[in-house]
Design a protein around this nucleic acid. Structure first.
Lengths: 136, 136
DNA sequence: CATACTGTAATTATTTTTATTACAGAACAA
DNA sequence: TTGTTCTGTAATAAAAATAATTACAGTATG
């Protein structure tokens, strides 16, 4: 992350849960999210890599959940989807000649890792099933 | 956020704490961060708006902390600096004709708000003083 | 074999972020 | 009172990140 990876992934998983095992194709999903189907397929590829979804190629193909929704917790989804640290590591190297600049990257990384951990723990208290049950 | 607002703000605050009341100018600070001075001044303007720093204009001017570092907690800094939701609300409106699309924005916002809350709570356990004390 | 998908790469467009330039106004010091 | 060095802020340009589009090989299906 950041951007919309997590939102898109969770949207996909929710859709797949709602249709209970039916295969949905990337175009349908993209229509619900309102984004490009290729973006959905990329997101699906990642979810597949992490074991959340199964896909079937070819005509009539599509994707479906690879686990029971009660066994998918949102903290794990977050971790699967996450690409970079949440609180943004600037690419600019701070000044190594400054006593603060020299060390701050390390300290920020520790701080961020802990804070992000708290966030993931919070997300992990919810399963996809619970999240999806909110839709009626 | 995201980007580097929080990193830059915390870098600034740490520097100001380290020099114990001395005025630092934006160019010096930018040199430590390795970014543009105007970016520092914008960040300082925000920190000033939230009461974390004081600035003095004119020759020999600069900025200094407006509070004791033990009274600045990183959760509050985060909240002052934060601009948008951490987990990225996509600007694409999901499809209102889809039962999931129609409701997901609301559900995601709730989820994100709670998760972010957990993160802020974690950050709030640390003061600037504690953070800055890690530098030696 | 035609059709309708996935998977993936390459390119282009768009948006966001950061840097740069510019300058008015404030404080200081000679 | 004038030159200097700052802040504060706006406007613009450059760079980076994100998303859309196009394209097509490979796979399953009828």
């Amino acid at each position: 992350m950041n951007s919309s990876h997590f939102s898109i992934s969770l949207h996909i998983l929710t859709l797949l849960d709602q249709v209970k095992g039916q295969l949905l194709n990337s175009e349908y999903i993209a229509g619900s999210i309102n984004c490009n189907p290729v973006l959905v397929r990329k997101e699906l590829a990642n979810l597949h890599k992490h074991g959340f979804v199964q896909s079937k190629e070819g005509k009539g193909g599509g994707s479906t959940l690879a686990k029971n929704p009660e066994d998918i917790n949102l903290g794990d989804v977050y971790k699967a989807v996450k690409q970079k640290s949440l609180l943004g590591e600037s690419k600019n190297e701070p000044n190594p000649d400054c006593p603060v600049g020299k060390q701050i990257t390390k300290h920020l990384n520790n701080l961020y890792a802990e804070a992000e951990n708290a966030l993931v723990k919070n997300l992990a208290t919810k399963s996809l099933k619970e999240f999806s049950a909110g839709f009626k």
